[in-house]
Design a binder for these strands. Structure first.
Length: 487
RNA sequence: GGGCCGUUAGCUCAGUCGGCAGAGCACUUGCCUUUUAAGCAAGGGGUCGAAGGUUCGAGUCCUUCACGGCUCACCA
């Protein structure tokens, strides 16, 4: 008989005794953490406590049983013995309770010989019967596929997993609090868009039946948020789930979370400052010393972030001034020398982009701002006043990954139209990630977008570097997996 | 999509040269009234990821497929 059948038999015994194995409310329990913290040796041994939780261990010991009960706040030992419980009740308890069951318990506290604060069970209630055994108690659940597919088991038996996801949630809470405190308004903009804009990426396509039209899942909320700035919401942000129809890796999931922030009458420098402040604010609340270990290297978040010009660090790491690569023959020689191949159209910006990613990005471990991106790579960013070939844009790199991206928003509708048209040419050359011409957005610009600083922070990756986790799947509760063969 | 590695009991894992399918935890039964990775004794539990092939004989060798991990490509 397999274990599920054994547990079903126990469930039937409960039902026969008139006990519903599921669904009884059990309100007003005390948190296990507080019970243990408040326990005093002089405590009245008659004082009854009420707890609810999951049975995580069951130690049968002579005519008594020790249990570990776990709730949201901690673990406590419970004890039931034949001589002080009703003997029939004691034996019934032993026969029907399994590891994994969720029980409500009442009874006084005492301390065992070995010093463990323990609740003596005087009254017990079945809240939910577990029909399947939990994974192994001290190796936990290790199989990575099963950890992701059955994340609830991973959370139950691998304590650091739960801690990490709690921290992720706290991070977002702190970021929101920081922005609320500074008068930013949180909004929601469309996930289903008739044109996927605001980033250079391949979208997912879906279909609206009633309208009989294709729609795209958003690759970014950017263009909608800037419409809101036009509409006088001058400090605005959105926590946005974005969808990109691209490869999956340890740093890419098809759906991921970005926090995008727009601040009117500011520029990219203000957004750099904001980025650094937000990250330091979050880190101070999560990491006692402001440091984390990333693949063996210590990252210090609390020292001032370094900043370098794109063109300077490119020259430093690639050994060639990127302007010289505008001669495509020269560019091809450099690619060949580095044995790097390109499967996008061979344009100056694609070559520069590729070389930057290959030679520079992975080396930026400590927080580093890179500023002054080429205009060709930044169709939505404002050109520099003193050199229109470059933009007032920055990206922040930590742990060799792009963590944030921000710029002074391009608010000139004529130049924006030209930029879209240049992207259209790339699209015609076969670049599926080139930005589409968004007439509706251009219309909004014609009503005047104030000078605005914009910023996007990748929440998943920021969580990774702060917690020192090198796979995005460790910070996404249910990362994308193929459907299993059969269940 | 390419390359490499993996898939054996509910979980964690062994399985040598191709020769009876294994251990620990979990489970069942018995003993044990302050244990805590409780202990002691006994027991049950397998479509060896799937399908085909080689062989007297396949968990083991070969082929194909599925799923996963790492990595390359793409991407944030």
């Amino acid at each position: 008989m397999d274990e599920k059948q054994q547990r079903l038999n126990k469930l039937n015994r409960l039902v026969q005794q008139g006990i519903d194995p599921y669904g009884h409310p059990f309100p007003d329990t005390e948190s296990i953490q507080h019970i243990k913290a408040d326990f005093s040796e002089k405590e009245n041994v008659e004082l009854v406590h009420k707890i609810g939780g999951r049975v995580m261990a069951f130690r049968d010991h002579g005519k008594s049983v020790f249990l570990d009960i776990v709730d949201e706040t901690g673990r406590i030992q419970a004890y039931i013995k034949e001589s002080t419980a009703n003997p029939d009740d004691y034996h019934f308890f032993k026969e029907v309770v399994d590891v994994g069951d969720i029980l409500g318990l009442k009874g006084p506290l005492f301390r065992t010989k070995r010093g463990e604060i323990t609740l003596e069970v005087k009254e017990w209630h079945f809240l939910a019967k577990a029909l399947l055994p939990l994974p192994e108690k001290w190796h936990g659940l290790k199989d990575i596929e099963q950890r992701y597919r059955y994340r609830y088991l991973d959370l139950l038996v691998n304590p650091t997993v739960k801690e990490n996801f709690v921290k992720r949630s706290k991070m977002l809470e702190h970021i929101r609090n920081y922005l609320y405190k500074n008068d930013f308004l949180e909004v929601e903009t469309p996930v289903l868009q008739s044109l996927a804009g605001g980033a250079l990426a391949k979208p997912f396509i879906t279909h609206h039946e009633a309208l009989d039209m294709d729609l795209y899942l958003r690759i970014a909320p950017e263009l909608y948020l800037k419409r809101l700035v036009v509409g006088s919401i001058y400090k605005v942000f959105e926590v946005s789930k974005n969808f990109r129809n691209e490869g999956i890796s340890t740093i890419h999931n098809p759906e991921f979370t970005m926090i995008e922030i727009y601040w009117a009458f500011q520029d990219y420098r203000a957004m750099m400052k904001l980025t650094e402040e937000i990250i330091k604010y979050v880190v101070k609340q999560l990491l006692p010393d402001g440091k984390t270990v990333w693949e063996g290297v210590t990252i210090d978040f609390l020292t001032p972030f370094t900043a370098m010009e794109f063109r300077d660090i490119f020259y430093q790491k690639v050994g060639t001034d990127m302007e010289e690569l505008r001669d495509l023959n020269q560019a091809k020689r450099v690619l060949k020398a580095e044995s790097i191949s390109l499967n996008r159209p061979l344009t100056w910006e694609n070559i520069v982009d590729k070389l930057f990613k290959e030679k520079v990005e992975s080396q930026l471990i400590n927080p580093t701002f890179i500023t002054g991106y080429p205009v060709e790579l930044s169709p939505l960013a404002k050109e520099r006043a003193d050199n229109p070939k470059y933009t007032d844009r920055f990206e922040l790199f930590i742990g060799g990954m792009e963590i944030a991206n921000g710029f002074t928003e391009l608010n000139d509708p004529f130049i924006q139209r030209d930029r879209f048209l240049a992207q259209l040419k790339n699209r015609e050359k076969g670049d599926v990630e080139a930005h589409q011409v968004d007439e509706d957005y251009l219309l909004a610009l014609e009503y005047a977008l104030p000078p605005t600083g914009g910023l996007g922070i990748g929440m998943d990756r920021l969580t990774m570097v702060i917690l020192g986790l090198n796979s995005i799947r460790e910070v996404i509760l249910f990362p994308h997996l193929r459907p299993p063969d059969k269940i």
